[in-house]
Design a protein around this nucleic acid. Structure first.
Lengths: 268, 268
DNA sequence: CGAAACGTTGATATCCTTCAACATGAGTGG
DNA sequence: CCACTCATGTTGAAGGATATCAACGTTTCG
C-alpha cells in the first residue's frame, strides 16, 4: 500500500471543480506526465509500453457535467480513458425508464463494448466535469498486433467492468432497498479509496438521489427515505458534494457486502 | 440467413438428451470437425486461425445438469467454450440469496472474467447436461501474442457477455414482473434462433421457475403466477422442456423489448 | 413406497411506488 | 434587487405490486 502522504503529494485533482468549462482540449498532454499513473496505484508498465500507449493517445478533452460521452445507438464510437471526474453507463427503455448500469471512476476505460459492436447499446454520461483521454479505435485495435500484453490489459478492463455490473445486478435483484444503498456506498467508497481519493473516511460523492434511484432500481421517494434511515443509523454524513463514512463496518454489514479483492489494475 | 433445412442437416444436437452421463471425456474431438462451427452461424475464420484454435483445445468434457463448472472463490480457473447445452453464471449473498447473472448458450465463452482475476467472483453451473471445450489459460494468453485477431475475438466475446448482463440489469431494475419475464423469454428465443435452435417458434427451454425467479429478482410464487398470466394471455405454451412462442410480437411489446442487433459473432 | 424436485393456488403481510405538497438553493432575466 | 424557474431534497398518505406463508398436486427416482 502507498502511504496517504505520498498519494497526496503526487495526486492530480481527480475531480475538477470548475463547472464552466466547455468542450475544450489540451493538446499538450502526454502519457509521460500522466498524473493518474504517477499515483502508483496502477499496474506498472515498461517504458516501451508507455511509449506505445502514448502513441495511441490522440488528445485529452474536457466535458462538462451532464454531457453525453457516448450516445446510445451511435455508430463507430471512440474509446476513452476517464482521466478525471466521474461518469456512468445507462440504458433507457422505450418509455423513458432509465437504468444506470455502473459508475465510472478515473482510470476506467470508456466505450469498449460500444466500440466492439460498432454501435453503442447504452449511453454514457458525465456525472461531474470530466477529462477524457481519446483513444482512436483503429489505434487500439492495432495495439492487439503490436503489444499483446496491453491488449490483454484492455480485455482485463472489460472483464472488470462486467464484474461491476454483476455486483450491481446482484444488489438490484436480491438486496432490499436498505442493503442496496449501503452496498452502493461501500463499493464506491472502496473504489475511491483504491484511487487514493479518500481522506479520513471522506470522499467526493457527486451522485444525486436521482442517480442512486436509477442505479438501484428504486423510486426517488423511497431512495430519499432509505438514505435518511441510514443516516439516522449513524452510517454516514453528507455535505456539499462529499460523503463521510462514520461507521464503515456497520454499513458493510448492513449491505451484506462481500469483499472481492481484485489485483492491481492496468491503465491504458 | 441460412435456410432452416441446411441448419437442420449440419446441426449438432446442441442439447444432449441423455441425463446419465458423468464427467466424461472425448479425446478424439478436434476443432476441424466442430459441428457448432459447421452451422455457419459464426464468424468465418481462416484455416490457419482454425489450426491455432485447434492447438489451444485440450479436450472436450461432459458434465451433467447441475454440475458446478466454476466454483465461486476458486483460484486459477480454466476457460471453456460451451459446445452444447446451457449453463448460467450466478452470485450468492452470504445469507444464501442467489442472483443469476446471465445464461450461457452454445458458442459462449465460459470463465473469461474468472480467468482474468485468477479467482472466480461468481459461480457457473450447468443448466442441462453440457459439453465443454477446455481451453487452458496459458494457451489462451499465448493467443494474444500469436493471433491478435483471435485475441480480439476473445475480448469481443467478453463484451458481449457484459451486454447480456446489462440487459438483464435493466430488466430487473426497471421492468415490472410481467415485462421481465416477457423480456427474458424473448431474449432467450432470439439467442436460440441465432443458433438455429428454433423450429416453428418452438425451442428447448430448460429453465425451471426457480431459475427464472433467481435471474429476474422475483420470488418463486410470483414468478409462477406471472408466468401463468402470460400463458393465459396467449403469449406462449410450454411442454416437456420446450417453449413455443404463439405470439412473439405481442410478447416483445409487453416486454418493452428493444431489439439490439449484434453482428455475426466469433467462436473460439 | 417415500422422498425430493417442481409446479400451482389462496390468503395475508409488507416493501416499495405513486401522488401530492413543500423547502431550499442556484441560475436567469426582468 | 426581485421574481421566476428549475434541480434537488424532504415528508406524509394511500395504493399496489410483490413477498411470505401455507397447503396441495404431480412427477420422478431410488
Amino acid at each position: 500500500m502507498v502511504s496517504a502522504l505520498l498519494i497526496a503529494k503526487s495526486r492530480p485533482r481527480l475531480i475538477r471543480s470548475s463547472s464552466t468549462l466547455q468542450d475544450s482540449r489540451d493538446m499538450s498532454a502526454t502519457c509521460y506526465e500522466c498524473a493518474l499513473r504517477e499515483c502508483g496505484l496502477f499496474k506498472p508498465i515498461t517504458p516501451e509500453e508507455l511509449s506505445v500507449i502514448n502513441d495511441i493517445l490522440r488528445e485529452r478533452v474536457s466535458r462538462p457535467a451532464g454531457a453525453e460521452i457516448v450516445r446510445a445507438g451511435d455508430g463507430s464510437p471512440e474509446l476513452y480513458t476517464l482521466y478525471c471526474g466521474w461518469a456512468f453507463r445507462y440504458k433507457t427503455l422505450p418509455d423513458g425508464r432509465r437504468q444506470i448500469l455502473n459508475f465510472l471512476l478515473p482510470g476506467d476505460l470508456i466505450g469498449l463494448q460500444a466500440a466492439m459492436f460498432d454501435a453503442a447499446l447504452h449511453g454514457i454520461e458525465a456525472l461531474t466535469d470530466v477529462e477524457l483521454c481519446v483513444l482512436p479505435r483503429r489505434k487500439v485495435w492495432a495495439l492487439f498486433g503490436k503489444k499483446p500484453a496491453l491488449a490483454f490489459d484492455v480485455t482485463w478492463l472489460g472483464s472488470r467492468e462486467e464484474s461491476l455490473v454483476d455486483e450491481n445486478l446482484t444488489s438490484v435483484g436480491r438486496r432490499t432497498a436498505l442493503e442496496r444503498i449501503a452496498a452502493l456506498i461501500v463499493k464506491l467508497y472502496k473504489r475511491a479509496a483504491a484511487l487514493g481519493l479518500v481522506t479520513d473516511g471522506t470522499f467526493a460523492f457527486p451522485l444525486t438521489q436521482h442517480h442512486i434511484a436509477d442505479a438501484l432500481g428504486l423510486s426517488l421517494v423511497h431512495t430519499n427515505k432509505t438514505l435518511a434511515r441510514l443516516r439516522k443509523l449513524g452510517m454516514f454524513t453528507q455535505g456539499n458534494g462529499s460523503l463521510k463514512l462514520t461507521n464503515p463496518r456497520a454499513l458493510a454489514r448492513v449491505a451484506q457486502y462481500f469483499d472481492e479483492e481484485i489485483p492491481l489494475r492496468p491503465l491504458i
